[in-house]
């Protein structure tokens, strides 16, 4: 199981109208690993990560070609139920975006929408998810308080807990720490470290250090193309492309 990739992307082309945003992307994303996506702004990282849970379906005039296999099933195949795909592939966004409801309701939201109504079971899910997101101790006394009263870092961990509550197989994170201070960032990084034992994690980051610290694989995107993909250490130590090394060393972007 560990050997076969979680996602296997073949010849993926994505168009926003006439704009060719992803060009012939080929990638194999391993399970129980952290895969980092790096590259200058506008190169298509977010677009790519949103391919994995089909969030691009919401964008009008967005055309996708190629195959995206998740556990050898084409998620763009005709039989795929998008909502159940999204329960399996959770997502955390750049800016913390908790719902304007209580902390408890935020975490319980996903399971409730799937039809879980039993309060005891929901309580269990909430506690379990908050513990795994390393937030439980901080909020266990104020679960009924509005989630917007939490600090930015806590809100982001709440969003992670909210994603975990769905018991997904994959967690996608699009620049999850770019709006946070260094201490909150550190806590999220530690959290990812512990989460990768159970989940496949895909993270977009602008911080080379972060990619180096937490990821096992790194993909470098440029103008919609994957220029380089491989083990993080290899990509950083021995980049095969001039552009990769220039980007990593901060010479463009």
């Amino acid at each position: 199981m560990n050997s076969s990739p979680k996602f296997s992307i073949k010849n993926l082309n994505l168009y926003y109208g006439v704009f060719h945003a992803l060009k012939a992307v080929e990638m194999e994303i391993p399970d129980r690993n952290v895969t980092a996506l790096i590259g200058p702004s506008g190169c298509g990282k977010s677009t790519f990560i949103r391919v994995l849970n089909r969030m691009n379906d919401l964008v009008r005039d967005c055309l996708i070609e190629g195959t995206v296999l998740m556990d050898n099933t084409n998620i763009y195949g005709p039989g795929t139920d998008v909502t159940s795909l999204r329960t399996a592939v959770g997502m955390v966004f750049q800016k913390p975006n908790p719902f304007p409801m209580s902390i408890w309701q935020n975490v319980a939201y996903g399971p409730k929408m799937q039809g879980l109504r039993n309060t005891a079971a929901l309580n269990e899910v909430v506690e379990e998810s908050l513990r795994r997101a390393a937030l439980w101790d901080e909020v266990k006394d104020r679960l009924k308080k509005n989630a917007l009263s939490l600090s930015g870092g806590q809100q982001q961990r709440l969003c992670i807990a909210r994603a975990i509550a769905m018991q997904p197989q994959v967690i996608l994170m699009d620049e999850p720490t770019s709006a946070l201070d260094p201490i909150a960032t550190k806590r999220i990084e530690e959290l990812m470290e512990s989460l990768k034992r159970d989940y496949c994690i895909v993270i977009v980051t602008h911080s080379m250090n972060q990619a180096l610290r937490i990821s096992d694989k790194t993909a470098f995107f440029l103008m919609g193309e994957v220029l380089e993909f491989g083990d993080t250490a290899r990509v950083f130590d021995d980049p095969r492309h001039e552009e990769t090394s220039r980007y990593i060393t901060g010479h463009f972007g």
Binding site: L58, T83, F99
Partner: peptide, 25 residues
């Protein structure tokens, strides 16, 4: 829009998102 995305990314349907997140907010 980020709230809608958050809800949809959790596997909620558009209708659930509309009532439970958008209207509540």
């Amino acid at each position: 829009a980020t709230l809608r995305e958050a809800s949809l990314a959790l596997g909620a349907t558009k209708m659930q998102t509309a009532w439970c997140v958008v209207c509540t907010s």
